[in-house]
Design a protein around this nucleic acid. Sequence first.
DNA 1: TATCATGTTGTAATGATTACAAGTTAGGGA
DNA 2: TCCCTAACTTGTAATCATTACAACATGATA
Lengths: 135, 135
Amino acid sequence: MDNYVQILKKNGLKVTPQRLEILKYLDTHRTHPTADTIYSDLKKTTPSLSKTTVYNTLQHLGEHGLVYTLTISGSELRFDSVINPHHHFLCKTCGSIIDIDIECPNARKVESAGGHRIDEVHGYFKGVCASCLKE
Amino acid sequence: MDNYVQILKKNGLKVTPQRLEILKYLDTHRTHPTADTIYSDLKKTTPSLSKTTVYNTLQHLGEHGLVYTLTISGSELRFDSVINPHHHFLCKTCGSIIDIDIECPNARKVESAGGHRIDEVHGYFKGVCASCLKE
DNA sequence: TATCATGTTGTAATGATTACAAGTTAGGGA
DNA sequence: TCCCTAACTTGTAATCATTACAACATGATA
Ligand SMILES: [Mn+2]
Ligand SMILES: [Mn+2]
Ligand SMILES: [Zn+2]
Ligand SMILES: [Zn+2]
């Protein structure tokens, strides 16, 4: 848990029990959960938790690059504390979001060619996962 | 306009004035508009148009692969009638979505390695566009 | 031209996210 | 260690995109 304290301090964020809980949750549940899932699960052990705090915290963590905010689903945001560059696969059958451990080889090229400054790279694949294909 | 009729017929979709209008709109406004923007603009010349029809039509067109539904913004869907594979850049300053004319080189590889069936590939970059960087 | 499945419309409901105001707390300085 | 205050948390209300639904209209087919 000291680990999470350091992460927050290093980024100039105040250390609060709620933020530690959310950081820990993301670190130990690598399922790309929604804000509501995080809220519901943490509410069991921290009944005073507010959903607004979950949203606020996720936004802060995102702004500081401590979580990755995925827009893959289109209907709700998904959160990921694994921040090394990787892609994602969304199974339209079972809804699971699977990590794809590759990095976009074109990002820097696009930046220099187009003159844009790229802060975030998102690679999304959608289809049917291997597990669902078997059935 | 006959062009749009052919596109619908070829895909077994009924030809209606509303669908033709929406197809034409997307083809002539390559700005990746929201459903609401399409609705508001078409409403000027077609006052009887319903927003539900815009949503329904976009969903049908999407299911038939005639439009590409972008989840890049996270708060609203964006639509694109240019369906050849390409990536997108979202400027967080001005909000514009810019086409990046590259294709993901990893898609087939991911498919064979992971055993998933990939139906859609989305490559999103987010940052500040060249035009906004100048200011 | 009659039929009917399909499309359209307007309105109401839903669900994720944000706004806001009041109470609470973390953490730097006395 | 204790205060002070800015920052954080909470609960509720509002917002906004999208979907559900039911009544009506229309396009394709025979
Ligand atoms: Mn991930
Ligand atoms: Mn495009
Ligand atoms: Zn699956
Ligand atoms: Zn811009």
